[in-house]
Design a protein around this nucleic acid. Structure first.
Length: 367
DNA sequence: AACCTCGACAACCGCAGCCGC
DNA sequence: CGCGGCTGCGGTTGTCGAGGT
């Protein structure tokens, strides 16, 4: 298959485009359409190869391109689609009107990928990086050995497909950090140390091994905040109240019922542990002027929709331990609202990974 | 002020696949 | 069916500006 000669011809300019070149390209395409990219530069009077013109147009000059920072909604969609599609940037871009594959790819590599890595999540597989965890610590932990433990951690081993389950990472990270920070933590109230997240339990129980080597779509457990409406835990007011009571501000729960949360909070939650935990704000930033809700027609009627995030209680916390999280005081709860710092996105991302694939999103079309 | 480092993003490179001849 | 042209796509590199020393 012969390769098309491109910019290697003498006299063809490379590098950044000048405003004059941009204008020439725009004028020509507006008048004639791009037609054959190969002949376009000559007809438009540009000393560029067709390929360069095409890239410049599709990635930068196209009038429908949306520029500027990615919104939370867009970021969420990117992460979710990437977990399904992998590096199919063009397919992902097709779900994000106004964004180009190049832009998404760049954003992924410079922002999201790093953030996921920081969170201990493999950006390729979207799985918790268990290699970063000291599994022996988990296996030797009291909660693992306890007869009270309802979590069969041994299933962690060899459960690759559970990988898409951020709860696993949360659990493992929490176990590890809590054990390190406060070895007595899990021993203090063994009767109350049961993991109260039915999702976690159900996931461990409901994934027979033969289901764990299936296609990517099936690998994604139906573990979703939207499917767990009964996990109110704490709202902002409660969090503030908690702070007022000198309770750990950065605390979380395992998605338990409120009464359980409180019991856990009252009896189990160690202050040391809280220092490494990320508070999950109840994000209502979609009311922000800067974040017009994006509605993908394909997703509009599905659970897989950014607006559903409003209905998802993000008090259902992520307990991902991040180095930067410990310095964020929760006292100023408004800090989280309509804000978009990297740290907050760290927390947010952990929930983004917690999703279900709507039926209406026919991922097979990308496969 | 000069230099260095790093992040963000635009642009390029090269491969793969489609399509017409 | 094979070949060559063309386009799309994903990975990589280059450039530039901001911030730090």
């Amino acid at each position: 298959m012969g390769r098309a000669p491109c910019c290697d011809k003498d006299g063809l300019k490379k590098g950044p485009w000048t405003p004059e070149e941009d204008q020439k390209l725009i004028d020509y395409i507006q008048k004639h359409g791009h037609g054959s990219w190969r002949t376009l530069p000559k007809n438009a009077g540009l000393q560029r190869c067709g390929k360069s013109c095409r890239l410049r147009w599709t990635n930068y000059l196209r009038p429908d391109i949306k520029r500027g920072r990615f919104s939370f909604e867009e970021e969420e969609i990117i992460i979710q689609l990437h977990s399904i599609l992998g590096n199919k940037w063009s397919a992902i871009a097709a779900r994000l009107p106004g964004r180009t594959d190049n832009e998404i790819k760049n954003y992924w590599n410079t922002h999201i990928r790093k953030r996921l890595l920081r969170m201990g999540i493999d950006p390729v597989t979207h799985s918790p990086r268990l290699d970063l965890l000291d599994l022996s610590s988990i296996l030797n932990s009291p909660i693992y050995n306890s007869s009270q433990a309802q979590l069969d951690v041994s299933k962690l081993i060899g459960i690759k497909p559970l990988v898409n389950n951020p709860e696993l990472l949360r659990l493992a990270t929490t176990l590890l950090s809590s054990q390190r920070e406060n070895p007595e933590f899990l021993l203090q109230n063994p009767q109350e140390n049961q993991l109260c997240n039915p999702q976690v339990q159900n996931q461990f129980a409901s994934f027979p091994p033969n289901q764990l080597q299936t296609d990517p779509v099936q690998e994604i457990p139906s573990c979703t905040t939207s499917s767990a409406p009964s996990v109110p835990c704490l709202n902002k007011t409660q969090l503030l109240q908690t702070n007022a009571e000198q309770f750990p501000s950065n605390y979380t729960s395992f998605g338990c019922q409120e009464s359980q949360c409180n019991a856990w909070q009252d009896n189990v939650m160690p202050s040391a542990l809280s220092e490494n935990l990320v508070p999950m704000p109840n994000y209502d930033y979609f009311g922000s002027d800067n974040n017009q809700p994006f509605v993908d027609p394909l997703l509009e009627n599905s659970n897989f929709h950014p607006s559903n995030i409003n209905n998802q209680n993000f008090g259902f916390a992520s307990v991902l331990s991040t180095p930067s999280s410990s310095t964020t005081p929760l006292n100023s709860s408004s800090t989280y609202i309509n804000s978009s710092t990297e740290d907050e996105r760290d927390s947010y991302c952990s929930n983004m990974l917690n999703f279900e694939i709507p039926d209406i999103l026919d991922v097979n079309e990308f496969m």
